[in-house]
Design a protein around this nucleic acid. Structure first.
Ligand code: FES
Ligand code: FES
Lengths: 140, 140
DNA sequence: ATATACCCGACTAAAATAGTCAAGTATTAC
DNA sequence: GTAATACTTGACTATTTTAGTCGGGTATAT
């Protein structure tokens, strides 16, 4: 079970942004420098965050991205969904009657993995961006 | 976050075994057929389970593998560890002072991912093989 | 003897990941 | 009005990981 960089960077970048005044556009270049994340990779990530209405963009000089909501109201689960990073613990298709390995019934471990799936998603449901900021120094 | 087949099959195979009398060797061929898992892949997995003292082997005709302990005393976390499948949520090296991206301090999201790591491992710590068997039909 | 079933290291095809690249467009500052 | 900044978009690619396979064993029961 590994967390990929796309999700990790998305949260990291948004956490970086949320340390600034809410209507102040933050440029990807700055985030890239502060957090040591590739600028081109960030661009890719932010297009998805924009499409999913987590941020909005301001073009041109002194432009950048702006959070669309208060950090308190941005759940990690939304961020993950925005960058298409799903939790996948079962081996079968979730909505299908079929099991993994092409069988017509769910396997003996299916329920366990399903439970794990819910358990992990629960973590992301119950965390928001502002949870990342409490008791933290501004170390950028 | 995806669960790989190695862990999934390891648990599945052991759950299969634990439905049989404790000292009755179960052959990988049978597990392979019942659970539709490649026999050669299972062999690879069971060598590790054996090295980690979760099962022991009985060679020769009518041989197979036998659980070394009661299913109640085999935690999922042990199984995962045996097949080298770790949870990895942080981007940095856990024991190092350094952060991800080669910085000398931990990043702004480090604590979050560390918390997630503990949270997920907790699930595996609190589940054992026998938990998979309650209220289940023998559908093999 | 022979069949069964574990043992072990090395190998490989395919998929996923972690980015990069090229060629834009919109906005602001001067 | 032109230069500079910064977002936009789709395609492309190297690397790594995954999910196995393969070949050639050894031990044991019948
Ligand atoms: S994981 Fe769903 S059927 Fe096996
Ligand atoms: S995840 Fe540990 S420093 Fe970033």
């Amino acid at each position: 079970m590994k967390l990929n960089t796309k999700s990790r960077y998305a949260v990291m970048a948004l956490a970086d942004m949320s340390k600034f005044p809410i209507n102040n556009p933050v440029s990807l270049r700055d985030i890239s420098l502060r957090q040591s994340i590739s600028l081109l990779y960030l661009e890719q990530i932010f297009l998805k965050l924009k499409k999913n209405e987590i941020v909005k963009s301001v073009r041109g000089t002194n432009g950048g991205y702006v959070l669309r909501r208060d950090p308190k109201n941005i759940k990690l689960s939304e961020i993950f969904q925005a960058v298409d990073q799903k939790v996948k613990t079962v081996g079968c298709k979730k909505d299908s009657k079929k099991g993994c390995n092409g069988k017509s019934v769910k396997c003996i471990t299916h329920e366990l993995w399903d439970e794990l799936d819910i358990y992990i998603n629960n973590f992301f449901e119950n965390k928001n961006l502002s949870d990342l900021l409490v008791n933290k120094e501004r170390n950028y």
